[in-house]
Structures are given as C-alpha cells and as structure tokens.
Amino acid sequence: MDRLIYTAMTGAKHLLEQQTTNAHNLANATTTGFKAQLDSFRAVPVISEGLPTRAFVVDATVGTDFSTGVLQHTGRDLDVAVQGKGWLVVQGEDGTEKMTRHGSLKISENGILQTQNGLQVVGEGGPITIPPEVTIAIAKDGTISTIPMGTKPNAVQTIGRLKLVNPPESNLVRGDDGLFKTKDGVIPDADAAVTVTHGSLEGSNVNVVDSMVTMINLARQFEMQMKLLSNAESNETKASQILTLG
C-alpha cells in the first residue's frame, strides 16, 4: 500500500512545483525582456530488495526558454532591444557584472546610465555618464552619442558604448534577482556581432495561451494524484475490515 502512497505523493509534490513555475511565467507575461522558465523532470526507480516496481519523480533541472520576444516600438531615446542572440551587461547589486534583455534605461540624478530598477549599465570602458541637456542617440552597435540641445545636428559627441555580450546559452544561469550570469563565473567579453534596436523594447517570450493550457493540464494531473491517494486510503480501510472479520 505504501508504494502507491509514496509514488502519488512525489508526483503531486513536483506537479505543485511545476505549477509554481508556470504561474511565475504567467505573472511575467508583460515583463520586458523576460525569458520563460522551463521545468524538466525524470523518473528515478526505487532500488530495494524486491523488484524495481516503483519510480519517483525528480526535478532534474530548471531551464530557460531563450527564444526572442516580440519587439515593441516605443520611440523613447533610452529604450534599446537586443536583436537576436545577445545580452546587455549591467552591474548587479553585489557589484558583479550580470546580463539582462530589459533595455528600458534611465539617467540617474548623477547622470549615470541605469536600468529602471537602479542598476548601472556597464559600458566597454566602465559606467556611462550622460551630460545634462543633450539629445541621446544609440547606434546599432551600442555606441551612445549626444547632441547638445540648441546646437547644430553635426555637433555629435560619442560618450561610450554599451557592453553587449553573447556567451553560450548552455553556460547561463538565472539568479534570484532575475538577472543572468555564467555558471563558471567568467565575465564574458564584449561581442561586436551583437546589435541593438534604438527606440524599441523586447517583450516577454511567454505564450499566455500555452501557459493557461498547461495550468489546466497540471491541475488535472494533480487531481489524479489526489484520487490515487484517496484510493490507497480506501483500500487500506477495506483491508483492515477484512482482517478484523478474520
């Protein structure tokens, strides 16, 4: 009887974890640059003195869907979207370089180029400082140029270049802060092949319809596991009654 109980219990436990991941994806369906999380499960047989008739479910890895989201044109000077493969480098709260696809930027009160949540954008030469009262233009290769207001358009000054990288996706891991870093801790070098689109943002790659269907399927699978536990309890009760009559 315990075989059925533990098998159903582990299945229900990991179904709840998968439901949590799916709900997290749905909650970020409108988050700029968000990459959907993927759960991967595998069956592990239980090795005992008897026959290997039982198998437990184990959460093997939590992966990431790196497909590109839909580009949304905003027309804002400080919005950039990475085209194709690649990442924008920012400085995390712990001071290390991390990667993101969220290209909605702002200028701090000190003139430092930052993300909307206050993280410094890393340039190829360090932090990028924007002078006051200028018009900003970001080229396809990430070069940032400014034109002082009230001057001729040909008075262009280059002040820096975004650090754009493209490490192997197999070497990337998502941190608790939602930013990505390399598994080996090696800071990737700038990749000249990575380009950006000025005045646009990349939307989330979460498919809302697929996520809703997945949520319904997971709920049904969880209900099936609960029915197995209920059947195990019913069988145990009837077995106890038979033993009592005997």
Rank of each mutant, 00 (worst) to 15 (best):
T129G: 04
L88K: 04
T7V: 15
R54A: 06
V206W: 03
V173C: 11
E124V: 00
T7Q: 08
D141E: 07
A232Q: 05
V62G: 04
A219G: 10
N110L: 11
L201Y: 08
G11T: 03
P52K: 08
P167L: 03
N110H: 11
D189E: 15
I242V: 09
T21Q: 00
L105I: 03
V44A: 15
Q37N: 11
M224R: 15
Q18M: 04
K183D: 09
R161C: 03
F41S: 02
V206T: 07
A27I: 03
K181P: 08
T195V: 07
V173K: 10
P188K: 05
T129H: 12
G69I: 01
A193Q: 15
N28P: 00
Q225I: 06
D176I: 15
G95F: 09
P148C: 14
G123C: 12
H198L: 05
S230R: 02
S211W: 08
K35S: 05
I242L: 04
L218A: 08
V122M: 02
N205I: 10
G203S: 06
T31N: 02
V208I: 15
R220F: 01
T68M: 02
T20E: 11
N207M: 12
S40H: 13
S40G: 04
E49H: 10
G185S: 06
M212F: 01
Q116L: 11
E93D: 14
N110C: 13
N235Q: 08
L105M: 09
M224F: 14
L179G: 06
